[in-house]
Every structure is written in C-alpha cells, then in structure tokens.
Design a protein around this nucleic acid. Structure first.
Lengths: 152, 152
DNA sequence: TGATCGGCCGAATTTAATTCGATCTGGATG
DNA sequence: CATCCAGATCGAATTAAATTCGGCCGATCA
C-alpha cells in the first residue's frame, strides 16, 4: 500500500469505469503496470467490487428513513436472525448492528410515507424480538464516495 | 424504465466492470443495444456513477460509528453549515439530515477507538451549534448493493 | 562488484467498445 | 385492413482498450 496504490484507489472510488489506459496516463505509469497493481489490490480484497450508483428515485424510492430498533432478548442468535431478516427485505439497503441506546439501525428506502408506514407495520411490529423502534425520516444525505487512508 | 432497463441496473449494481459484451449476452441482446440503453440511463442520471468498493480496514479504518447530533438553533443556515463541515472531514463517509430525536446522524470511520474519541473531542465538542451528541459504535454492517425498483 | 529478485515497461496479440447504416416492430391513421 | 412512421434493435466494420509476456532496470545483499 504505497502512494501509487492509494492513488489508484482514489481514482477508482471516484470513477470505476475509466479505462485502464486513462488511469495509467493520469498516474504517469504504463498501462500494464497499472493493470497489475489493480489485479493485486483485487486479489488482496482491498478492492471488494465495483458498483453502479443508481438514483433511488428512479427505482421508485422517494422516501428514505433510518429505523432504530431495540431487540430483546439480546443474544447473538436473536441479533443474527433479525439482521438476516432485515437485510433480506428489498426495502432495506443497510443494516447496522450498534452499541448504545439502540441495538440495530436499518436504512430503508420506500416509494412514499404511506408505503413506509405500511412496511413498518407489516414487517416489524409483529416480530417478538422487536420491543420498540423509532423512525427518523431522512431529509438529505450526502455520501463521501472517496475514502482516503487515515494515519493513526 | 422497462424490464430490460431494470435488468441492466441490477447487473451493473452487482458488477459495474463486467464487459458490455458479457452483459449483453446475459440479457440476450446485441452489444450495441445494451450500450445504447446504458448511455440513456446515464444521460437520464438514473445511473449516477460507478464506484470501486474499498475495504475500510485497508484504509486504516477499523472502527466505525454513527454519531447522533442535536443542533441548535435549528435553522436552515445552521444545518447546512454543519452538514458541509461534517461532510468535509475525511473521517466522515455519510451525513444524514433527519427528523426525530436527533437532527443529524453522521457515519464515521477511524483507525481506532482512541482516534475516534480524539476526533469527536477535537472536531465537534467546540462547535457552538452542537448541543449534544451520542456515539453508537458499529459492530457489523451489511450493505445491500443491488436495489430493485419497488411497486407502489 | 556481481548476482538476484521484484517491479516496471512497451510491443504484440487478443478482446472489447463504439459507430452507423439497414432492418424490424408496434402503434397511429386513413 | 393496409400503410406509414418513429423509435428501437441489430450486426458488421472500425477504432480503441485489455491483456500477455519477454526484457530491462534498480535496489539489495553477499
């Protein structure tokens, strides 16, 4: 992980579909060198994949929310099961298992507020391990696509 | 946005670097047709970009957390300013502006718990608009890379 | 100093992206 | 019901990129 690797990661986080030639030219190295570096980064699982970023609105997901769950009893099996259940719902994009007042925070995106309400009622209120949840509707969210290495 | 567009989005969300030829063959269409569909999806901003997914641990980000902020006074200008400030910090990957008990939720990733503590003390406690914040350390998080269109 | 190794380079080859004219399809219209 | 039209699709030809691989360079160590 030298400066060249960092630069490659920086550029591929920003635009994963630029050609290897362009990237190599930007970095001032040969295309074959660049290709080999990327191959190693993938083999080492530093690069986990390449994903298209799709506008949620185009997928009829106009309302997003964070749902804060309290789960009881708090055991590994229960947490794992609930996490798997939530992650399998098509409305759910991210599941966080966390410390603090809540046990799990789930990011969902739905067509409308009505849909969100029905979704929460149908999918979560009946589950025994859910002793409570709170909904935070998301007004805005900004995502930092490019993460730099941090120095300790 | 017919079924073919949805299929293209599904495949590009999963793997944005498969070749156009492979994608076309998977979908049973000509490469030129597939290319044109993708061109239109990009022009319509349905596809917003392509990003490499990099392992945070490889960037020395071993500890992640969600920070829940309460901001006062609660005005557009204050919220916007704080959002811009938070989003500009390299440790921050996502900023959510939300309804509910908290005003903003910020996803951060840092090298260690010590770093996280110092970061929070240095970057947030001194800001006047921050009247309080709570930290939820993230034990696990699963991300659903492929979002399907929802029917209302 | 000389040997060795790992990484880098660049030319050659293979493969893919892109372009564009021809063809097809489905819907509107007389 | 036949015709027309517009938009989408196709496939061959061209352009450009990915990939391979043998050789070179520079750092390291005996």
């Amino acid at each position: 992980m030298d400066e060249l690797d960092s630069a490659i990661l920086r550029h591929l986080q920003r635009d994963a579909r630029q050609t290897n030639r362009d990237l190599a030219r930007t970095l001032g190295i040969a295309p074959s060198t660049c290709l080999e570096r990327i191959r190693v980064l993938r083999a080492r699982k530093v690069i986990r994949g390449y994903h298209a970023d799709v506008d949620p609105a185009a997928l009829n997901r106009h309302v997003q929310a964070l749902i804060h769950f309290q789960i009881r009893p708090f055991s590994r099996a229960i947490i794992e099961a609930f996490k798997a259940y939530a992650a399998g719902l098509p409305e759910v994009s991210t599941v966080y298992v966390v410390t603090g007042g809540d046990d799990m925070i789930v990011h969902v995106s739905t067509p409308s507020v009505d849909y969100l309400h029905g979704f929460l009622m149908d999918k979560f209120t009946e589950r025994r391990e859910v002793v409570g949840f709170r909904t935070s509707v998301i007004y805005q969210h900004t995502h930092n696509q490019v993460l730099e290495p941090l120095t300790p």
